[in-house]
């Protein structure tokens, strides 16, 4: 583990990808507003990480936010806050929006494409 370990801090960004920041913030806000406790979150996330490790996910921490995302999706579905089909449909809708929006234009989701 220390091989990939930058031991000084200053230059290291808190999040290496924007979606890491988003998924982190969404999870924290949902917990802060009482949709689940942080203990419930850590237990669920821990179980997802353990399952990922058993399935051969890299053990160097590089898949951390991938596991976080899987954990949030499944917790939302389990808690009735989101529906699996709706999530899949919105992902497709966003994909289409990106593919249809000219480079440089703001990408917006058309309500018509929205299955929710």
């Amino acid at each position: 583990m220390p091989e990939q370990l930058p031991s000084q801090v200053s230059a290291e960004p808190a999040f290496s990808e924007p979606w890491h920041a988003q998924v982190f913030a969404i999870t924290m806000r949902l917990s802060q507003s009482g949709h689940f406790t942080w203990t419930e979150w850590t237990e669920h996330f821990g179980a997802v990480q353990a399952a990922a490790a058993r399935d051969g996910a890299p053990d160097d921490g590089s898949g951390y936010y991938d596991a976080w995302l899987v954990a949030l999706e499944s917790l939302l579905i389990k808690g009735g806050l989101a529906d699996a089909d709706a999530l899949a449909g919105l992902k497709d809708a966003w994909t289409e929006a990106y593919l249809k929006t000219a480079h440089g234009e703001p990408v917006e989701l058309k309500q018509a494409a929205n299955p929710v």
Partner: peptide
Amino acid sequence: GSATHSLLPSDPALRVKAIETIL
């Protein structure tokens, strides 16, 4: 498909956008 459309975000980034949209 050339550079005429916006750069498609990664699979997880799109899944996060889907979550965000619903919430």
